[in-house]
Design a protein around this nucleic acid. Structure first.
Lengths: 109, 109
DNA sequence: AATGTTTATCGTAATATTGCAATATTAAAA
DNA sequence: TTTTAATATTGCAATATTACGATAAACATT
């Protein structure tokens, strides 16, 4: 097959998987780290930062946009990308909640 | 193509992407949530918990194992899976660090 | 030893992802 | 208005992922 059976899982599980999927490529991690580093909207030179062709970068940006993690604002003939702080914070909490849920006093293994 | 150019990115970026990839499927999230919930090693009834066939679950378990997130211990003719606490903690920190790196006082967008 | 139980692996089909050249689109600049 | 610059989209090839039936492997039970 190759198609995920997403309807068999909870909304939460699908949400976590979707966020993780957006982060599941080094190029997209690099884009986000760059946006975090410059701490501002960046108009386009993301392409120069990455070792990938422009259409490929554009595609990764699109995926991050579709996941809601970044937004792009038109600014002249360039486009200004930045991280959506609300979504970023929401995602931070989702992962925090998941990772904190472990019980350190396990009795087996 | 379809093959990620991982050699062009930093170790850190590839690491984050690899962890995210392991979480990038609802079935694997469900497996982890189940292991967190029962707080013990679970021998095989993960298959009964998931709406997927046994070989498919086995494959997802393998991916989580390859990512180092879980480990499987043989117990009779069953296998006891559990979350590797050290790796879990390490991954928690990696995500925490990534998500905390945002500056709330942005000046544009 | 034969049988049943549990889990892994193989083989394969369907689908998704990654990457880029070519091209389109949009708006600024000349 | 033509040209230039910045992004997006299209189309396509290579590869990866997801899913499962069939089967194998390992061990327990009878």
């Amino acid at each position: 097959m190759g198609a995920t059976k997403s309807d068999h899982f909870t909304q939460k599980q699908n949400d976590i998987a979707a966020i993780a999927k957006a982060l599941a490529h080094p190029a997209r991690v690099a884009i986000l780290e760059y946006l975090l580093k410059v701490d501002a909207c960046i108009c386009g030179d993301i392409v120069n930062e990455l070792p990938l062709a422009q259409p490929t970068v554009s595609q990764h940006l699109k995926e991050l946009k579709n996941a809601g993690i970044i937004s792009g604002n038109i600014e002249g003939n360039a486009i200004c990308y930045c991280i959506d702080e609300k979504v970023w914070e929401k995602n931070r909490k989702i992962f925090e909640t998941l990772f904190e849920r472990i019980n350190k006093k396990k009795t087996c293994c």
